[in-house]
Amino acid sequence: MSSSDKLALTLLLLALPLALVAALVSGPVSIDLGAALTQGWRSESSDAVILWQLRLPRALLAILVGAALGMGGAAMQGMLRNPLAEPALLGVSSGAALAAILLLYYGSALQASWGSAWQSGWLLPALAIAGAFSAVGCVWLLAGRGAGAGQLVLAGVAINAFLSALMALALNYAPSLFAMQEIVFWLLGSLANRGWDQLLLALPFVLLGAILLFSARNYLRALSLGEDSAASLGYRGRRYPLSILLGIAAAVGAAVAVAGTIGFIGLVVPHLMRPLVGQDPGRLLWTSALAGALLLLLADILVVNFVGAQELRIGAVTAFIGAPFFFWLIVSARRGQQL
């Protein structure tokens, strides 16, 4: 790693707490941050409630979700040896999304019997995480024994397509315009109105995912040489790809469950970080987590400061950052640079 790369990584690391402070002072109401902090989280003053119950959990959730998406993208690109892979490719996001949609869809019926769970806001994310794991399970079964990256992608695309069809069907027969609007907004992704409940629900899954992915970092390194060479370096059998898939299902599934589908972070962030870590797919994991966290937090600051009749959805913001990045990729590939 060259010294300029080290400097860039240090700046990233320093930028995260700064962005966190910026997120805490951003919002329609200006608060006295110092006073709110010293009053403590039990205080009933409006500044303290805004800080401790609204802004802090939301900012921490942006960090957690962004880190999960960035790390998931880096792991997916590493496992499939493909810079265009993203965590949604293997159906994780659509599995989570479908489960969430079904709940929003039949929500009113369930609300009666599951009243308390519905109120606390953990039912939807919990079901979405289960949906993510189910989708990855289906991909794993469909790809079959000893599947290589190619078969996994094919199985993932197939499962993904099927889940998208089910989502289209659910939208088609949405019981009311209100339900449809809720589904569409959920699909666009948002961090608004999230609190400690969602954060505490997602945290263990993202941590579990991080442990699974980081424990497979040497497998990803060996895999840069190809599957046969990785096998000869000791990374043989289903254990390693399985741990990557479960890691992505846990981390990205939990991220989608609490924040909806937020695209492009998982695709763009590993690309941005790859040159800084000498293209090493192992170190790319934590740097992508860091940069994903920063990027999503910055995008959310933009969302919070955006003044309009409708809330600006964060999924739309990340897509606006992501798509021009693709233009840039194409232009630099045209100039003969490496993707």
Binding site: L223, S224, L225, S229, S232, G234, R236, Q279, D280
Partner: peptide, 27 residues
Amino acid sequence: SPAQMARLCAYLPQAETPAWSLRAADL
């Protein structure tokens, strides 16, 4: 075990295409 085998045997396949543009020394 695969890990033990890797310490006993080094293998270079016929066509090995690096997925990422690693530094030669890192490869």
